[in-house]
Design a protein around this nucleic acid. Structure first.
Lengths: 354, 354
DNA sequence: CTGAAAGCGCTTACAG
DNA sequence: CTGAAAGCGCTTACAG
């Protein structure tokens, strides 16, 4: 038995031509087909469990129904949610995801781009991350040259040539920190990831903006940390605990760093939210597990919107590149739950001297 | 300008036939090609930035280089790691991942299987999860019927028809619990997910085995919980805290449940590891964030091995189905760190009466 | 050592 | 209302 029936098999069985089969199965209006013929074809297809071969279809139509996704290999559930959003919107468009991880030319493995181009993907969702190698930029250029529609997620440094989707990290960080200030916190600190990635830099900037707006001097003295890596974060967290006066509220650049902050604090007998408020970023499963207030970037929606734009671009390649800054929002949990009234009264007492 | 050069373009440029181009580019030994011709073809290909069209290639060869992956849409980093392993091994084999999420026929969207078959994937990695709908089983049957090589991950209830890869949940749970018993814990409890999924049932079984082996009577009285859902887990955790005597060690069916256990305990002023030991499952980012001892299933390796087997099966479809139980291992962290000596001495005192 | 021709499974003008 | 034929970009016997 042949593995798959083809359109000729269906045609033979229905007693019609391959052409007719194609018209019926693709619902072509061009040439009307008599209802009986139509039904015969449909029956034959069902009997033979016929499934159109999308490779052949793709070759001819010049549209494969494959969307390439380049995704960082890091186990962060942000990416998993992003993928779900991307897939959702792809399926709605009759497409499917060809998933690839970046792996440099150095590693001896073929780069993801080669695969994406060889499979003639209709478009690419490029999820950016910090990376020393310059391969990424070269890949991007090849995509642009080959005129493969492309949208970048999580970076906007190439906004001049492709569509970019980023979160409103600066604004949302500023808002979160402003919230801490409004809740009468005086001594804040930021557990940062430095400039390792644009998201880290943006979150740091938001923190600085809010602090400056509140009239705080020498803001940078309240910032520690250069990387998202847990070990480095743990060290920076310890430094924060040694600040004088000790911060009563800490804004971390992501949930992993917030978790390190919490661990470091517990080790010296400090608890959250009793002794300090803490805000993380990403609203990952870690935030839920720790009952941690965190910024949710709504990655599913980012994924959906990115694909939506990609599809627009596939239809009209001449569209000018746009950058969209997606709205995040703060999810409040126990780590910032110490009642404002409590603190306000304490503050009043201690500020009586003023 | 044409979007992609094809093999005819290359042939023309190199002044040879399409056949020769094909032979050179596929490194065929059948017909030796003169070094000069060879070089001319290679040069022409490079100049035109030629990338073979894998769709055409796939049609003819009957091998597309596409591996279908069906994955649950849940944001658990276990899946992300599994995917990395799967991709790794695929790339090593010159294949790429076609990623799909299950979404029932009810939802109006085409089922993933249709896509996988239409794209003529060479094989399928089917990552199982609990699901009320019977679609999954129907899909599996269609795969088997169409003779699409398939391996299931995380379930072994179809071991008679396809290859299955599961973790050694029973054994590893038993070992973890035995470890708690050896550390002189007397009053244990299990925060379970009931029989909602086979993994949950297996972990529960491992707990029971260890307890029975230690001579504990009425083990089921020390088990609470029916689901991996956080809310239900939180309730079950509260029940565990009300047990008399209060457990000094708790084995949770996964990290999310362990986190709920921790939150519930903290709410009543109990701390880990001072007041009780806690073990989770999955070694997710949650375990790292909480400094939680947890069982690592090594999902990357599971993914790699599953694909390895799939490739064997692609080469020889008559292989009998096998089930492989992959080795996990306990990662010890702070949640079980209370020194054994401490407890041992306490235990000796309190058990003097015996 | 190299090429002309047939074919993979599909779609699409075109003709009847 | 329907079909024969050419074509998408590739590979593979086969012939020279």
């Amino acid at each position: 038995m042949k593995k798959h029936a083809n359109s000729i098999d269906v045609a033979r069985r229905a007693g019609v031509s391959q052409t007719t089969v194609s018209f019926v199965l693709n619902n072509r209006r061009d040439h009307a087909i008599s209802p009986e013929t139509r039904q015969r074809v449909l029956d034959a297809a069902k009997e033979l469990r016929y499934r159109s071969n999308r490779l052949s279809h793709g070759i001819f139509r010049g549209r494969t129904g494959l969307i390439g996704v380049i995704i960082p290999p890091r186990p962060d559930d942000y990416y998993l949610k992003l993928l779900v959003g991307v897939s959702d919107e792809c399926v709605r468009n009759g497409s499917r995801i060809l998933l690839t991880y970046p792996s440099g030319s150095d590693s001896g493995t073929p780069d993801p781009l080669q695969a994406l181009i060889e499979f003639r993907v209709d478009g690419v969702v490029y999820i950016w991350e910090e990376d020393e190698s310059s391969d990424r930029v070269a890949w991007l250029q090849e995509l642009v040259e080959k005129e493969v529609p492309c949208v970048i997620v999580d970076d906007r440094s190439h906004a001049d040539i492709v569509d970019c989707f980023v979160s409103d990290d600066i604004a949302e960080s500023r808002a979160a920190v402003t919230g801490l200030l409004k809740a009468c916190h005086r001594d804040l600190a930021h557990l940062s990831a430095g400039n390792s990635v644009s998201t880290a830099a943006d979150r740091r900037q938001g923190y600085i903006d809010a602090m400056v707006a509140a009239g705080v001097e020498d803001v940078t003295a309240t910032i520690r940390g250069q990387s998202y890596l847990p070990d480095q974060g743990a060290r920076a967290a310890q430094e924060i605990l040694k600040m004088i006066p000790r911060p009563t509220a800490i804004f971390a650049a992501n949930d992993i760093l917030a978790a390190e902050m919490l661990k470091a604090a517990q080790r010296v007998g400090l608890n959250c939210p009793e002794d300090f408020a803490l805000i993380g970023y990403g609203n990952t499963s870690i935030a839920k597990a720790l009952d941690l207030t965190s910024v949710d970037q709504n990655p599913e929606e980012i994924g959906r919107q990115a694909v939506k734009r990609l599809i627009e671009r596939m239809a009209d390649r001449s569209l000018p590149p746009i950058t969209r800054t997606m709205k995040s929002r703060l999810i409040e949990r126990n780590s910032t739950a110490k009642s404002q009234a409590d603190r306000a009264s304490t503050e009043l007492e201690t500020t009586d001297a003023n």
